[in-house]
């Protein structure tokens, strides 16, 4: 028991350290390199105007938004995998992501004037996306309740909603002007390039509000490894915790995709990677999953920014391309994930 305690803590510390390093590097690197010295100057208020602008207005919010997005998606994926009891469950299967996409694209297409300008400022796009994801949550939950055969049916109605949303999206993209369609596609890929402090504040506060609930739910998460009757018999209020977990998961996904678009595969990958690091099924797993997710999105965004300069690859593209090899990996090491 002692050994696992140290092991868990060193992994946690290692991940935090890694996250700090990657953050720092991605703060420095980019179209212009900012040295340590200049960074310290900015910190003590001595930096040049352009340095301050680049760091505080462009890179810092982008980094924090990437971290927030990663945490939200990863935790959401973990919760959903536990609720559905299937290691392949991920936030994108519950209609929330496609709902957000639909909202964002309706905004882009409907509020474009003839000349191709937006009638509303683009800052309103996340609001539209959030409304879209709320609609998805509402419809999918309503159908699941109507169905009354348990939460695992969420996934089926999520698929239904996604199909309809995707159809509407393709219809709208064909009706709308072509440059809007390509803008919409960019959104669908998922990227944190349009980060600003407003988004950072909103997404951070959402995470801070939900964090205590997540931590309180962590021991229930562990207990849900058992079948529902046994879990109930050991004292867990199964229904309440399942419902709480799903609501939390969809809310987190909605927050993440509203600001960063449909960054795929983080919710699927992060919990699996985290399980590789720790035998824990509770609080430690939750923390490691969150950190892994943050690292994934931050790393993907950093790579996309640096690797193909001056071209910027959206973070979602990178995470998707990590997803593919992982898929093969799962094929190869199937026994790790095989559950009876």
């Amino acid at each position: 028991m002692k050994r696992s305690f140290f092991r868990n803590n060193s992994i946690l510390l290692g991940l935090v350290f890694l996250l700090a390093v990657v953050s720092l590097i991605s703060l420095q690197l980019g179209s212009s390199f900012i040295s340590f010295e200049r960074m310290i100057n900015i910190l003590v208020g001595q930096g040049t105007k352009s340095d301050i602008l680049i760091v505080t207005k462009l890179r810092l919010p982008r980094i924090i938004l990437a971290i927030n997005t990663g945490i939200a998606l990863a935790v959401s994926g973990l919760l959903l995998q536990i609720v559905i009891k299937n290691p392949l469950a991920s936030p994108s299967l519950f209609g929330v992501v496609d709902g957000a996409a639909l909202g964002a694209i309706i905004f882009l297409v409907l509020f474009s004037s003839e000349t191709g300008n937006l009638v509303f400022p683009v800052e309103w796009q996340p609001v539209a996306a959030f409304l879209g994801s709320l609609l998805a949550i509402f419809v999918v939950f309503w159908l699941t309740i109507l169905d009354g055969r348990g939460l695992s049916r969420l996934i089926l109605y999520g698929i239904c909603f996604s199909a309809l949303a995707t159809a509407l999206i393709s219809l709208l993209m064909i009706i709308g002007p072509i440059h809007r369609a390509s803008q919409a596609f960019l959104w669908l890929t998922g990227s944190v390039h349009a980060a600003n402090w407003q988004k950072v504040v909103i997404s951070s506060s959402a995470l801070i509000i939900t964090a205590p609930i997540m931590m309180l739910l962590s021991s229930s998460m562990k207990q849900l490894m058992l079948d529902e009757e046994s879990a109930q018999a050991t004292g867990l209020t199964v229904k309440t915790s399942l419902v709480l977990m799903v609501i939390l998961a969809t809310f987190l996904t909605a927050i993440a995709v509203s600001f960063a678009g449909a960054v795929g595969f983080v919710g699927l990958l992060a919990p699996h990677i985290a399980r590789f690091f720790t035998p824990s099924h509770g609080l430690i797993l939750l923390f490691i999953t969150a950190l892994t997710g943050a690292l994934l999105v931050l790393g993907a965004d950093f790579l996309g920014r640096i690797a193909f300069q001056p071209l910027q690859i959206p973070a979602g593209a990178i995470t998707a391309f990590i997803g593919a090899p992982y898929f093969l990996f799962m094929l190869r090491f199937k026994n790790v994930f095989h559950r009876r």
């Binding site: 931590m215 309180l216 962590s218 021991s219 562990k222 207990q223 490894m225 058992l226 079948d227 009757e229 046994s230 018999a233 050991t234 004292g235 867990l236 035998p279 099924h281 509770g282 609080l283 790790v336 095989h338 559950r339 009876r340």
Partner: peptide
């Protein structure tokens, strides 16, 4: 219960510890 189930990769100790759920504090 008649047919209790848990993931195969759980250890004996982990499973038995789950019995303590009702006695644990909020953070487990």
């Amino acid at each position: 219960t008649q047919k209790p189930s848990a993931p195969d990769d759980l250890t004996v100790e982990q499973l038995i510890k789950m019995g303590r759920f009702a006695h644990l504090g909020y953070l487990g």
